[in-house]
Amino acid sequence: MLEEYWVYVLIAVAGFLATDFWRWLGVLAGNRLNEESEALNWVRAVATALVMAVTAKLIVFPTGTLANSPLWLRLAAAGIGFALFLASGKKVAVGVAAPIAILVVGLLILQP
């Protein structure tokens, strides 16, 4: 594909530097934040919204095999699973097992 050494230069510059640059900025910014400060509240909100946006996209627009399953099945699995998780008193094991079980059962039923 490319010359051997050039791939490592690419990994170092377009991979390592391109990601760790933001991590370093995060350390410098976070180091100025007090644990009880208003600014940290905002940063927490932004970080949580970011991670959840990525997460929701994994369910709504999946890549790979899951992309062949119907959207309604994935949403039902995640939604009903979350409801069961809340009903269980926020047991993470339920929050993981329930959606997977619903998804697998759904896929088995839908299988031609």
Partner: peptide
């Protein structure tokens, strides 16, 4: 593979919600 792809997001959903102490989160 389908079940594995689904594990990551549903784990994040329940664990982040379970660990959210502040209303803002």
């Amino acid at each position: 593979a389908g079940a594995l792809f689904m594990l990551t997001p549903v784990y994040f959903v329940s664990s982040i919600w379970a660990s959210a102490k502040q209303v803002v989160v």
